[in-house]
């Protein structure tokens, strides 16, 4: 119940601030992320992205890259595209909720629904075709 209220609050604040973000976005020369105004840069303490796609593009892509192919420097960020480790939906949920190596537990800044949404998005895009969706109930026990 508490969790549902939190989600509603997040969405409500997103709607209230939507006009500000939209005007900021509209003034920029290029806005590469469609629909971004609906959910980014809302608050520092948690992610407000309303869909799995927006979460990927605005948060995950910072490291795993917009094409989800990962990247390499002194170390690397693994590709999520065509990644067989995503076969079991519980694995990406676990990584989001507990972190992995240098990766922070970013799922702790998302609602259960948001975690499920972004996991489901990645597991059905970028060459991944895993149709068994995870649910918020799969996320909750890892809090």
């Amino acid at each position: 119940m508490i969790r549902k209220q939190t989600l509603v609050l997040v969405l409500a604040s997103a709607a209230a601030l939507g006009t500000i973000a939209a005007s900021a976005g509209a003034q920029t020369a290029a806005n590469p992320v469609p629909g971004e105004a609906a959910g980014t840069f809302m608050m520092a303490s948690k992610f407000s992205e309303p869909t799995g796609e927006l979460m990927y593009r605005n948060v995950c892509a910072g490291c795993h890259m917009p094409d989800a192919k990962g990247t390499q420097g002194a170390g690397f960020y693994p590709a999520l595209a065509k990644n067989e480790k995503l076969a079991a939906g519980g694995y990406p949920v676990l990584v989001l909720m507990k972190g992995l190596n240098g990766m922070p537990a970013v799922g702790q800044m998302m609602t259960d629904q948001q975690v499920a949404d972004v996991v489901n998005y990645v597991r059905t895009h970028f060459g991944n075709k895993y149709k068994d969706a995870v649910t918020p109930a799969d996320v909750q026990p890892l809090r």
Partner: peptide, 25 residues
């Protein structure tokens, strides 16, 4: 000097877009 969710969101933008946003804000 962004932190938290804002830092992730800024980082996901191309560098020129980050500069543009910092300018707007």
């Amino acid at each position: 000097y962004a932190n938290g969710a804002f830092a992730y969101e800024f980082t996901s933008l191309a560098p020129a877009e980050r500069v543009q946003r910092a300018l707007e804000w």
